[in-house]
Amino acid sequence: MNALGRWWRREWPLHAMLIPGLAAIIVFSYIPMAGVVMAFEKFIPTKGLFGSPYVGMKNFKFLIDYPDIGRIFFNTIYIAVMKIAAGLLVPITVAILLNELGRQWMKRTFQTLVYLPHFLSWVLLSGILIDVLSPSTGIVNQMLGLFGVKPIFFLGDNRWFPYVMVVSDVWKEFGFGTIVYLAALTGINPSLYEAAEIDGAGRWKQTLYITLPGMMPIIVLMLTLNIGNVLNAGFDQIFNLYNPQVYQSADIIDTFVYRMGVEQTQFGFATAVGLLKSIVSFILISASYFLAYRFANYRIF
């Protein structure tokens, strides 16, 4: 008991520090989970959450029979997978190139510049992109016009819209990923490069046989952790940039839930879609943490 008392006197301030965060999680994350019952109801706001008529699995049946649900899931996975792939390749490449810079002030300056877009919201960036990609006055189409290319409506053409989402998302976020991979590069023993140089290896072979293998644990970790984001294609970005002309290629699960729940007031159906997405995401996140532990020895507990 004396040992337990000493432990408690030493540890209670740390536990007390958790109380505000725990309270916030309970209030904003767990209590709202009571709204999940709407997925099994024909929710009527005037009757309340527990007074609305119970319909069982009717909303889920309607979800399965909905004609566009397959396309919506495909759009979500397609855009998300492209973002994950590009979000790995570009930061890795930029981190390796930055690591080759000899002048530290140039490295720090460039690193700061590519990191700045991470702090800008999509509300602001969407206005910039709409102006830049405008088919009539946008600088991109003006530059293409110099080579005889006709104006392209990037944000109103189903063929171009998904790729604009991927490129703009990578431009905004690759600076953050670059910092992660630069940190991984600092853990590589410099003597390995010296030994490789003595053996006659050039910069390309040093990158291929030393840099990339040294970064591989963090690359595997980031890849496996991103598996849980396969159903998160970026609501903020797409909601601020899409329009009815590109619903065919731009409509994802989150925007569909917003339209069904907020605009069309089909609260039960929208909740059913969101609940299904949450269940699948939970399975994917659990699998990603297992894979992260299996291949990168990463543990959260």
Rank of each mutant, 00 (worst) to 15 (best):
G175I: 12
G138H: 00
F62P: 05
L129T: 03
D251R: 10
A296H: 04
T137Y: 05
R108H: 05
M17K: 02
V262T: 13
T178H: 05
A296F: 01
P213K: 08
L144W: 02
L98H: 03
Y30E: 07
A233W: 00
G274A: 15
S29K: 11
M215G: 04
L4S: 08
L276G: 02
F269I: 12
K47I: 03
K172A: 06
S121I: 08
V262Y: 10
I279E: 03
V90R: 01
P244A: 08
V180T: 11
Y293N: 14
E100Q: 12
F161D: 07
V167W: 03
M33Y: 00
I84S: 03
M260V: 10
F62K: 15
L18P: 07
T137G: 04
Y54G: 02
P135R: 07
G5I: 11
T93D: 01
S278P: 07
A24Y: 09
I92N: 03
Y181P: 02
P213L: 10
R203V: 12
Y54C: 06
A195Q: 11
P53Y: 08
T265I: 11
N240M: 14
K107G: 00
I238V: 12
D157I: 11
R159W: 10
A39M: 08
L284S: 03
I96Q: 01
T109P: 01
Y209N: 12
L146M: 10
K277V: 08
I285R: 01
L98S: 03
R294T: 11
M57G: 14
N2I: 14
W204T: 12
V114Y: 05
A287L: 15
F174S: 07
K150G: 07
Q237I: 10
L276T: 13
N297A: 14
L120G: 05
G202K: 01
P117C: 05
V123A: 07
F176I: 11
M57L: 15
W171L: 13
F62R: 15
R159T: 15
T255W: 05
L120D: 01
E11S: 11
L221H: 03
F110D: 00
I253L: 14
V166P: 02
F153S: 14
A196E: 08
M165N: 03
K172R: 14
R71C: 02
D251S: 12
G228K: 07
Q264T: 08
F153V: 13
V166K: 02
A16P: 00
I77T: 13
M82E: 08
I31S: 00
